[in-house]
C-alpha cells in the first residue's frame, strides 16, 4: 500500500481524491462510528448506574426494614430511584390502594400487573440503543465493503485507457478504496463488543428484577392473608 508509489499517499490526499460515492460511504461510516461510540458511552453510564442502584436497594431491602417506611423513603426519592426501587414503588403502591377485606387473589393479581408494567418499562429503557449498536456492528462492514468495491471498479476502469498497466496505476485507487473497509471495521468492532456486553448485563438485571418481583409478591401475599 505504501512502498511502491512515489506519489503522495497521505491519508487526507487519499480521501480527498476518492470518488464522490466512496466519499459519501466514508462520511456515512464516520457518522455511524461517532453515533455508536456515543451510545456505547451512554449505555455504559446508564447500566453502571442501574447495577449500582439495584445493589444498594437490594441490600437495604433484605435488612428486614418495615415495608411502609421503605415505601415512604422510596417515594420521597422517586426521581433518583433505580429500576428495582421503582418496581417496588409501583407494586407496593398498588397493593396498599386496596381496602382491607378485599379478595387476596385479586389484590395480588393487580399488584403483579402493576409491577410487570413497571418492569417492562424499565427493561425497555435499559435496552434502548442496543439495537442501533447491533445494526452498526452487522451492517457497517458491508457498507465499507461496498465503498471499496466501487473504488476498485473505478480504478480498474481508468486502467483500460492505458496500454502498459503497472501496479502503480492501480495502487492509489485500491488504497483509497480500502480506507472505506477499514472505517467500516473500525465502526463495527467496538459496536459488536459493546452490544454483546450490554445485552448480557441487561439480561442479568432482568433476572434480578424478576426474582425480586416474585419474592416481593410472596411477601405481600402473606401480609394480605394475615
Amino acid at each position: 500500500m505504501n512502498t511502491t508509489v512515489t506519489e503522495d499517499l497521505s491519508l487526507f490526499y487519499l480521501i480527498s481524491s476518492a470518488s464522490l460515492f466512496v466519499q459519501l460511504v466514508m462520511l456515512l461510516l464516520l457518522l455511524a462510528s461517532l453515533l455508536s461510540w456515543w451510545y456505547i458511552f451512554r449505555k455504559l453510564f446508564v447500566l453502571r448506574d442501574a447495577i449500582r442502584q439495584s445493589d444498594e436497594f437490594e441490600d437495604y431491602f433484605w435488612r428486614g426494614v418495615d415495608l411502609n417506611t421503605l415505601y415512604q423513603r422510596a417515594t420521597t426519592a422517586r426521581y433518583t430511584a433505580g429500576s428495582m426501587e421503582r418496581i417496588f414503588i409501583s407494586g407496593f403502591g398498588e397493593f396498599s390502594k386496596h381496602p382491607p377485606g378485599t379478595d387476596v387473589d385479586m389484590i395480588m393479581e393487580s399488584t403483579r400487573r402493576a409491577m410487570q408494567a413497571t418492569y417492562q418499562r424499565e427493561m425497555d429503557r435499559l435496552e434502548t440503543h442496543l439495537s442501533f449498536l447491533a445494526t452498526v456492528g452487522s451492517v457497517s462492514p458491508y457498507v465499507g465493503l461496498l465503498g471499496t468495491v466501487w473504488g476498485i471498479m473505478n480504478s480498474f476502469r481508468s486502467l483500460s485507457n492505458i496500454s502498459q498497466a503497472t501496479i502503480a496505476h492501480v495502487a492509489p485507487g485500491i488504497a483509497e478504496a480500502l480506507i472505506a473497509t477499514a472505517m467500516g471495521l473500525f465502526a463495527a468492532i467496538p459496536a459488536v463488543i459493546a452490544y454483546n456486553r450490554y445485552v448480557s448485563d441487561t439480561e442479568k438485571l432482568a433476572t434480578r428484577f424478576e426474582s425480586f418481583m416474585e419474592e416481593l409478591s410472596n411477601i405481600l401475599q402473606r401480609r394480605a392473608s394475615h
Partner: peptide, 20 residues
C-alpha cells in the same frame, strides 16, 4: 425510544458524546 423515556433524562449523554 427517547420519547418514551420522558420521565427521566439519561445521565451523562454530553460526556458520552465528548468521549466518543
Amino acid at each position: 425510544g427517547k420519547s418514551r423515556n420522558t420521565s427521566e433524562k439519561e445521565p451523562g449523554s454530553l460526556p458520552a458524546a465528548a468521549l466518543a
